[in-house]
């Protein structure tokens, strides 16, 4: 078990290293090949040759790619000094560098946005697990009847409607037309918990609807499969009440496969819910991703990619540990 976790954590580090390498390669090498100049991105079109040179030396853009990558890693782990003659800037670990566009340090910039994404993802996750799994179980138990049809039709709508459509339409209805909800936005939880919740309610629901639909379908399929297992028949043959057959024997194994899906979904959402955030104008990691890509802001792109990868890899590990805790047949080795 311990050896397993250590080995997995080691894998996490390796995976993240590979991710940085690839991202670094793609975003720093491609401009080189296409002949565009990152320094130009940094100082803007109007810069003169001297300023450009200054930037190049300061950022080390003239160094070979592996030196740049090495310095980048060094920055991540122990921090890094950018020095161009007299003006030396120290960037503390973990240093992702500075935004090309705003000159801001990347790490604080991302950390600043993390609570938004975190609030959005966790809130929505709670809603969709309760809603989706609940609907799925009901649907499985009422297979072929009206409740099943309603759930499955709704789920189909949920899966097929894009989030900017449901998001914008519901915002138009509930915030502007009916005026029941404040316009979506982010208020810090510490500042005003109530507003935090009401402001995020619509994004939560919209995002949760999308996932709940998938979860309802998955749950239904898993439950139906479980309920046809031999051990469920055994439970009935013991004389167990149907309530307990489903509640005690059915749910536990019917819902276990969802752990994997949930872990990965949450993991990737924590890296930024791009569509939801942009639809509702939330300034989270997803929005940062989009903006940085649009502006070719390489340090930020690297930062968000690494964040996203980190969450997914960790979610994966947590899923596997959880699985072993739930299913005694799974041995961690």
């Amino acid at each position: 078990m311990f050896a397993y976790v250590v080995r997995r954590l080691f894998n996490v580090v390796i995976t993240l290293l590979v991710v940085t390498m690839v991202t670094f390669g793609v975003f720093f090498l491609v401009p080189k090949l296409t002949g565009s100049d990152p320094a130009l991105l940094y100082v803007g079109k109007t810069a003169d040759a001297a300023a450009l040179d200054g930037i190049r030396t300061k950022l080390g853009l003239d160094d070979p790619i592996y030196v740049q990558y090495g310095k980048f890693l060094q920055g991540l782990v122990v921090g890094r000094d950018y020095d161009a003659g007299p003006d030396t800037t120290h960037c503390a670990a973990p240093c992702f560098g500075y935004s090309f566009k705003t000159d801001q340090e990347v790490w604080p910039y991302l950390i600043d946005r993390l609570p938004v994404t975190l609030s959005l993802a966790l809130g929505a996750a709670i809603l969709w697990v309760i809603g989706g799994v609940g609907a799925g179980v009901i649907s499985a138990l009422r297979k072929g009847r009206a409740a099943d049809r309603i759930v499955m039709t709704t789920a189909l709508a949920g899966v097929s409607l894009p989030i900017y459509f449901t998001g914008l339409v519901s915002a138009a209805i509930f915030c502007y037309w009916l005026g029941w909800l404040p316009p979506p936005g982010y208020v810090d939880f510490a500042v005003n918990p109530l507003e935090w919740a009401t402001n995020l309610l619509l994004p939560w629901i919209t995002l949760a609807f999308l996932f709940a639909a998938t979860y309802a379908r998955l749950t239904r399929a898993n439950m139906l499969e479980t309920l046809s297992e031999d051990y469920i028949r055994t439970a009935r043959a013991k004389g167990l009440r149907e309530r307990d057959v489903v509640g005690k024997h059915g749910l536990r194994s019917g819902l276990t496969p969802l752990i994997t899906v949930f872990g990965l979904d949450l993991g990737s959402l924590l890296g930024g819910a791009i569509l939801t955030e942009t639809t509702f104008n939330l300034r989270g990691l997803g929005e940062a991703t989009l903006t940085s890509i649009r502006q070719n802001d390489l340090p930020i792109i690297l930062g968000v990619t690494l964040f996203a990868a980190f969450f997914i890899v960790i979610a994966n590990l947590v899923v596997d540990l959880l699985y072993a805790a739930v299913d005694p047949r799974v041995r961690l080795s």
Partner: peptide, 24 residues
């Protein structure tokens, strides 16, 4: 019938691995 099941009449199934719950 449920009350009789498992008490007055009970059953042994063919495949004991799939007939027992893997998590208990």
């Amino acid at each position: 019938v449920r009350r009789l099941r498992g008490r007055k009449m009970s059953m042994i199934f063919q495949d004991p691995l799939s007939a027992m719950h893997p998590y208990f």
